[in-house]
Nucleic acid binder design. Sequence first.
DNA 1: ACCCAGGGTCATA
DNA 2: TATGACCATGGG
Length: 221
Amino acid sequence: MGAFTAIYDDLQQAFGAQAWWPAESRFEVLVGAVLTQNAAWRNVEQAIERLRAAALFSPEAILAAPVAQVAECIRPSGYYNIKTRRLRAACEAWMALGGESGMAAMPTRTLRDALLAVHGLGPESVDDVLLYGFERPVFVVDAYTRRIFSRLGLVESRIPYDDLQHHFQADLPVNARQYNEYHALIVQLGKSFCRPRQPRCGDCPLLSRCAHGRAEISQRS
DNA sequence: ACCCAGGGTCATA
DNA sequence: TATGACCATGGG
């Protein structure tokens, strides 16, 4: 068994089932993927609620609404001017690609390339949509993933997105359900034990695997 | 008061 | 190719 598979087992043992992504529709995954860029999910939930309350929760409604109204709705999620533009671009793409049915009919590679071409959708946002919205077996890499696995000594801290994604997809079976759980477990672990500056390594379930954690502990004491 | 969050784009070298 | 500035709100 490879290290990435073994760590998945450890995390599942430690944290149990996660059941991500909290969304009621594929479109909501797209909206959430844009709004959660470098923002706390709590704030994204507020922004989504405000869009719903304003009856702006469809690509058509968002595109028809005044830009200022959309911006006001999503304000709690931060970067609201930029994210308003990105959200509108995402809605345009959603419709241009034929909505749910059109996108569901596309091969994963084709759909990924089409979404990456949208201004404001980078690799993580796109892979959120592919994995959590369309159940495609695409591993989502985020800042926690890079930090955790570089501290574990398995990859370089500056490893490019696609390279790190490849490590996971080469080591794990091609299984969207498992990719879903694994990414959620990584975020759970990161929130508790793998902050950039304040790692609390003491009770980390991966401590025995983590040279960084031991080094930090001996440094700080 | 500082740190951080489920990133991405753009200018610069 | 790779680094840094910038975007902005809200909770610990």
